[in-house]
Design a protein around this nucleic acid. Structure first.
Length: 484
RNA sequence: GCUCCCAUCGUCUAGAGGCCUAGGACACAUCCCUUUCACGGAUGCGACAGGGGUUCAAAUCCCCUUGGGAGUACCA
């Protein structure tokens, strides 16, 4: 190709928290930029002032940063082609609109909503595609003056050619073409003086020298309109790449009723941003070496936009959960311990030393898939007494073998257990298992008795660790309490 | 309605005419490991939507049908 600088952008609209789909689009843009030593720009598209809010803008910043998708230029960091927030760019769009009018590519339209609606209904009735008739295309100055006198404020429409095709080669979809006669003259400036989306993006992308536009395929049909504008302006047309959509398991659009949709919601539920990025990268792209667990940097190395799948993909939690579990398992323990804290706010963490807190996380991290699983899994580390589950009471603590083990432990072992030395304690438990094995009680049943007494459950973290974190006093207390 | 996109195991995907009796991952099942849950290991289950072409040869190319998705706004 050429050696022009690669510049991509992610342009979210702050009418909600950063959506997981937008995050994937951001990721692919980021990957493409990094892979090609390009620039990755963040632009906030808040043209619709009613639906936009500062809180959402902040959420977009925070989410993108948390995912590690840091931008080179943007509203907060600036850059050579700012401002990067559309609401601050309102003065530049009318100039370009006027330029198009002057060149004959656009015209003022005085049609009312009612007239437009009537046209549309007529088309539907005749089973024809509804395309604006273009009746304001050739208004005389007198007619315009008359409309103005009536108080009508014009919108500005782009004059789309009546024939021919608009085509482009999409980086992921291949050759695409649209029949101009079916596009219809579309509005570029609303009657209130603000630009429509299709106009604002083109102007902004053009001014910001965006070379490649990677976005969701819901924008495919907009592309024809946008190319027409680029051409009318005599601007260089960027390369486009349209990604398949992310769908819910029922093949509908991913929405709140399917669970979390915003990146921040996933984080609040206990998903790790590293896992989120990794998982979402695999929706539409696959690593060349078959190793799916990869860091952002590794993905950058392996990423090629032309390898991206052009079909939609379904967002299933199974694999995300598995992947999140993998990341939790491998994460630096100090980092994990810090991330886990907010999830454990219902417990009095000051009860235990920092060292014990970390060890508790270390020994409970293994089976969990999301951080919030910790809430339940860590419960028995708190409080003086164990909360015994009903089943555990009847099936284990009330059983003959269970009591036999506990009785023996209380009478002969408990005082000898070395809570300070984990290896010693480990051996002592092993000896206990061996002792009862000769009496026909399985090793796991021996341990169940102790586990049940100490934690009230049949499963959980390593027994030695539990006993040590709980400390001698509470461990002894719980075991004695369960012994009849 | 019209336009466009898409179509390999339940899901994410590999596959760019012969390497495919279609490979991997998640999920599921069984077994092994084991102080529990889990992790890990092994095995199994499981797909080229259907129909026509093209070709010596098609999951791969073309057409039709079907199914799914998107767009069709003075919303972005």
């Amino acid at each position: 190709m050429d050696n022009k600088e690669v510049r991509v952008r992610i342009a979210p609209s702050p009418s909600g928290n950063l959506h997981i789909g937008t995050a994937r689009t951001a990721l692919f843009n980021y990957l493409f930029a990094k892979k090609n030593n390009g620039k990755y720009v963040l632009r906030i598209e808040d043209t619709d002032l009613d639906r936009s809010s500062q809180a959402y803008i902040q959420n977009i910043y925070d989410s993108l940063k948390a995912l590690g998708l840091n931008w080179d230029e943007g509203p907060d960091v600036g850059g050579p082609y700012g401002p990067y927030q559309q609401s601050e760019r309102f003065d530049i769009y009318p100039k370009y609109a006027q330029k198009l009018i002057d060149a004959g590519y656009a015209y003022e339209c005085f049609c009312t909503q009612e007239e437009l609606e009537a046209e549309k209904q007529e088309s539907i009735k005749n089973k024809k595609p509804h395309v604006y008739s273009g009746k304001c295309r050739h208004l005389t100055e007198e007619q315009k003056a008359k409309y103005r006198a009536e108080g009508r404020k014009p919108s500005i429409r782009f004059h789309v050619p009546d024939s021919g095709e608009t085509k482009f080669t999409d980086m992921v979809k291949g050759d695409l073409k649209f029949d101009n006669s079916l596009i219809g003259d579309f509005v570029i400036m609303k009657s209130n003086g603000t630009p429509t989306y299709n106009f604002a993006v083109v102007i902004d992308d053009m001014e910001m020298k965006i070379s490649h536009i990677i976005r969701g395929e819901d924008h495919i049909s907009n592309t024809a309109k946008q190319i027409l504008i680029y051409e009318a302006l005599g601007a260089e047309i960027p390369q486009f790449g349209h990604l398949g959509m992310i769908l819910a398991p029922d093949r509908s659009k991913l929405s709140k009723r399917h669970g979390a949709t915003a990146v921040s919601e996933f984080v609040e539920k206990g998903y790790l941003t590293e896992a989120l990025v990794n998982f979402v990268a695999l929706l539409g792209w696959s690593p060349s070496d078959g190793h799916e667990i990869k860091t952002l940097d590794e993905i950058i190395q392996d990423f090629r936009i032309h390898d991206v799948s052009s079909s939609n993909s379904i967002f299933e939690y199974d694999k995300l959960n598995w992947m999140n579990g993998q990341y939790i398992k491998k994460m630096d323990i100090k980092k994990l311990a810090d991330l886990a804290r907010p999830f454990l706010s219902m417990y009095d963490l000051s009860e235990m030393t920092e060292e014990n807190y970390e060890r508790m996380i270390e020994v409970t991290r293994e089976p969990i898939t999301i951080l919030s699983d910790l809430v339940n899994d860590v419960k028995y580390f708190f409080g003086q007494d164990a909360e015994i589950e009903p089943d555990v009471q009847t099936k284990i603590l009330d059983s003959e073998d269970g009591q036999k083990v506990l009785r023996y432990v209380v009478d002969n072992e408990l005082e000898k257990w070395d809570f300070e030395d984990s290896e010693k304690l480990h051996e002592q438990l092993a000896d206990l298992r061996a002792y009862f094995k000769e009496q026909g009680i399985k090793p796991k049943e021996t341990m169940w008795a102790i586990r049940a007494a100490v934690t009230g459950r049949t499963h959980g973290a390593d027994m030695v660790a539990i006993l040590q974190i709980l400390g001698k006093e509470r461990s002894v207390r719980r075991i004695k309490a369960a012994t009849k």
